[in-house]
Design a protein around this nucleic acid. Structure first.
Lengths: 211, 211
DNA sequence: CTAGTATTGGACTAAATCGTCCACTTACGT
DNA sequence: ACGTAAGTGGACGATTTAGTCCAATACTAG
């Protein structure tokens, strides 16, 4: 994991446990604020307050706001990808895929759809102005897509899906349905659009089920 | 068209043609900037510069930045909905629906997917912080969804789709696929994910075609 | 034409916000 | 234990940005 963004020149600055703890407190607070308020609407003072730190700590651990943003993207990506990896790993049937859907819809409904997808939101907000963020987020989306493609490939190998099912396209479509579901759900303050969108994608996938 | 947001107390201020022309120049410039830079990243000075106006003109025609944002949401919504209405009105076959898809994908590919959907982007950026914007955008999404539902209903009535096709759910799914396609396309700087997402939705709809 | 109203230009204020600096404290290696 | 480097607190400066104000100009109605 590239640490080379948190420190001015060299990445070889010595860090004590206390420093690392402070750093992660800052990143965690920033991640939460970015998620609920948006990146641009969150000021460094907000982060400072939420993390109970001081200005010098922010600038000791990060070059500036852009570096903090990149660190947050990093931690959010890891979080989402780890969660998805864990949920998709054992999926071997269409029912398992439905369970994956249920988990997403349930989590979304707990907050009435608000806040959407952490990665999707940052993507839309940042990709126009910050190329580095865009690339990082794009890599995460690609990894996410890959997990779906691998899951679908597994289903095909296991004989759950027919040979003419195209995991690449189906995986992309599934991720798009999820992201679109997030957008509509966030705006409607209801997880229902997301449920419908995912159901549509899953029904389509199910149409490739081996008879 | 509610004009009641542009002027402090009363909405009955007299306006001359010149004033109205200035006002629309401001809104148009702001709409463009919001689209390519994002709402929060656009300052009033940006708008002032792009529209060749002065501070007093901005505040003569709008109460402040929020009012300007609402005006932009209004004009963008009208634009998108008018475009969609025009494209969907005559759709009477699945081929017609494919043409609708082609138009969206083509427009998206012209800018390599950048910038995404004007409504979706503002929705994600604003819905957490501005309830009024959220509701306005939600109404637009709902109108958009309705157009798709009506189109699918028409196809069912015409016998193109079978009775068991559910236009409500299919319309929601179609809009979600489109929005998700926008998100992925914007991040990947390629319209391909959007094409795949829409194709999936259309294939699913086609599976309800009357045999 | 004239009075009143809309419109405009731009200087100005107040507040927010990013970023710097330095004295001070804590921890690590030897 | 002692010197050096990491870490901390918070004041401070510089810049950006939203918003105000007023004098000057264009327009409209009568």
């Amino acid at each position: 994991m590239p640490e080379g963004d948190t420190v001015p020149g060299t990445s070889g600055t010595r860090r004590t446990p206390r420093g690392l703890e402070t750093r992660s407190r800052i990143v965690d607070s920033a991640a939460k604020l970015f998620y609920v308020k948006g990146v641009n609407a969150t000021t460094l003072d907000d982060v400072r307050l939420a993390s109970s730190t001081s200005k010098s700590q922010l600038y000791n651990h990060f070059e500036g706001k852009p570096a903090l943003i990149h660190a947050v993207i990093d931690v959010q990506s890891k979080f989402v990808l780890a969660r998805e990896e864990q949920r998709l790993r054992g999926v071997k049937t269409l029912t398992g895929l439905r369970r994956w859907r249920d988990a997403l819809v349930q989590a979304n409904s707990l907050q009435d759809g608000s806040y959407g997808c952490a990665l999707g939101a940052m993507s839309i907000e940042l990709s126009d102005n910050d190329e580095q963020s865009r690339q990082a987020l794009n890599a995460s989306f690609d990894a996410w897509r890959w997990m779906l493609v691998e899951t679908l490939t597994r289903l095909r190998v296991l004989g759950v899906l027919a040979e003419d099912a195209d995991p690449q396209r189906l995986g992309t479509g599934l991720l798009a349905a999820l992201q679109g579901g997030y957008v509509l759900a966030q705006n409607a303050r209801s997880s229902e659009p997301m449920a419908v969108a995912l159901d549509m994608a899953l029904d389509h996938i199910a149409s490739f089920a081996r008879s």
